[in-house]
């Protein structure tokens, strides 16, 4: 039995090396992985605070409606009823905070409308779409359509 142990003792060594590597790995893991990792899901809860620190860019639909009543009514009556204001006008949280200090620019119509309405085989057939180069003969979209309620 003793001879058996003597002749197999060297096999312990790679096992010890593997164990040592495992211990080092676990030590690194304990040191690096944040303590609360996995508390809410497969992420670091501290990431939520970092995300919260990002400056708010969008004011949100309700903030726009508080002042822009006419546009809100026109929009609600037309086909753009479900398009949020900031989808076309861009993020305007700063404007909502201080309307006079941050006056937003009007969207560039030539590019804005075709983003959704340029003809594309992938779009549903009942979605209004045109080949803009041929559709208006060079006239801007809002020469004929009202953007908030885009009937002619």
């Amino acid at each position: 039995m003793r001879r058996w142990f003597r002749d197999s003792a060297h096999l312990i060594r790679p096992a010890l090396v593997l164990m040592a590597a495992l211990v080092v790995f676990l030590a690194i893991r304990t040191a690096i992985v944040p303590k609360a990792f996995g508390q809410y899901g497969h992420y670091r809860p501290g990431a939520l605070d970092l995300v919260r620190q990002h400056p708010i860019a969008f004011a949100g639909q309700d903030a726009c409606l508080m002042c822009h009543d006419d546009e809100a009514k026109a929009r609600a009556a037309g086909k753009h009823a479900h398009v949020a204001c900031e989808a076309c006008h861009g993020p305007l949280a700063q404007h909502a905070d201080d309307p006079s200090a941050h006056v937003p620019k009007l969207p560039e119509v030539a590019n804005l409308c075709r983003r959704c309405h340029e003809q594309d085989a992938a779009k549903p057939h009942n979605f209004p779409q045109v080949i803009t180069a041929e559709h208006s003969g060079g006239a801007a979209c809002n020469d004929c359509h009202k953007p908030h309620n885009p009937h002619l």
Partner: peptide, 18 residues
Amino acid sequence: TLGSYNISPAARRMDDKV
């Protein structure tokens, strides 16, 4: 060598089995 210099025939047989 990982510190082991035992290469007796019995140790080698053990290596072979493992």
